[in-house]
């Protein structure tokens, strides 16, 4: 079963209070707080039952109304002395009066809006391939336009692409041992020959670095007959020994 219930939507608590004031023909300068408070709370309860999300300001106003109501119930000491005390409703009334003014103006704006829309301006074709002086063009751009443009740009930014890269686990020390092992098998070995058994570029590079390292500490000696020709490795006696590690 479904119900169609029309619930007036109010712009805010002040709008709602003005609605009560108008509907019940209340004197805005002498608001019957108890009555208005109970009406106000009823509206909140109704909205809550209908799962209408009310702005927090409605609850804040409910608090203000209840505080005014309780203040008005308390007999005021000063009042007995005949002194003028501030009505606890004053702040609220001022807020309502101020808001009511602008709401009235907004109604006039609405009329003007309708009236202005009844006259159509001469339509001018906006020539898009007209050349603009960039300085002149920018003078018409507002800060808001710039910021919304920037936001759009950010939205259009391509998603970062991720690639999977396999980590190649290889160290110079390991390649030194590898080279030493190969030199155990064969006394003299060429770099090309050595590289043939390696899987990728990185391994070749690390192996080459290992060779340089070994030359430095005199473990091996190199021989190359000409530029770009094969480099031969040979074990050297008396150099720093590399202890093969497990």
């Amino acid at each position: 079963m479904s119900y169609n219930i029309k619930l007036d939507v109010f712009e805010g608590p002040l709008d709602l209070l003005l609605f009560f004031i108008k509907r019940d023909e209340i004197n805005i300068y002498d608001i019957p707080i108890a009555h208005v408070t109970s009406e106000f709370l009823d509206y909140i309860h109704m909205a809550q039952q209908m799962n209408i999300h009310l702005a927090g300001e409605f609850l804040e106003m409910a608090g203000i109304l209840m505080r005014i109501k309780s203040k008005m119930l308390l007999p005021d000491k000063n009042n007995q002395d005949g002194e003028d005390v501030e009505d606890p409703r004053t702040d609220l009334v001022n807020m309502l009066l101020e808001y009511r003014k602008y709401r009235e103006i907004s109604k006039q704006f609405e009329n003007r809006e309708k009236f202005a829309a009844r006259h159509y301006p001469a339509k001018v074709e906006n020539n898009s391939d007209r050349e603009y002086d960039p300085d002149l063009f920018l003078s018409e751009v507002t800060l808001f336009e710039l910021s919304s443009l920037f936001k759009k740009l950010l939205q259009n930014k391509p998603e970062p692409q991720y690639y999977e890269i396999e980590k190649i686990d290889i160290s110079i020390q390991e390649q030194r041992i590898y080279i030493m092992n190969r030199l155990e098998e064969k006394k003299r070995i060429g770099f090309w020959e050595l590289s043939k058994d390696l899987d990728n570029k990185l391994e070749v590079i690390v192996t080459f670095l290992a060779i340089l390292e070994m030359v430095k500490v005199n473990t091996i000696k190199l021989q190359q007959n000409d530029v770009f020709e094969e480099i031969y490795l040979e074990k050297r006696d008396g150099g720093e020994q590399i202890a093969p590690r497990a």
Binding site: E11, Y102, R103, I105, S106, K107, F109, E110, E113
Partner: peptide, 10 residues
């Protein structure tokens, strides 16, 4: 314009 927009504008 909505009531909220008109109020704000005024």
């Amino acid at each position: 314009l909505s009531q909220a927009a008109l109020e704000t504008l005024s």
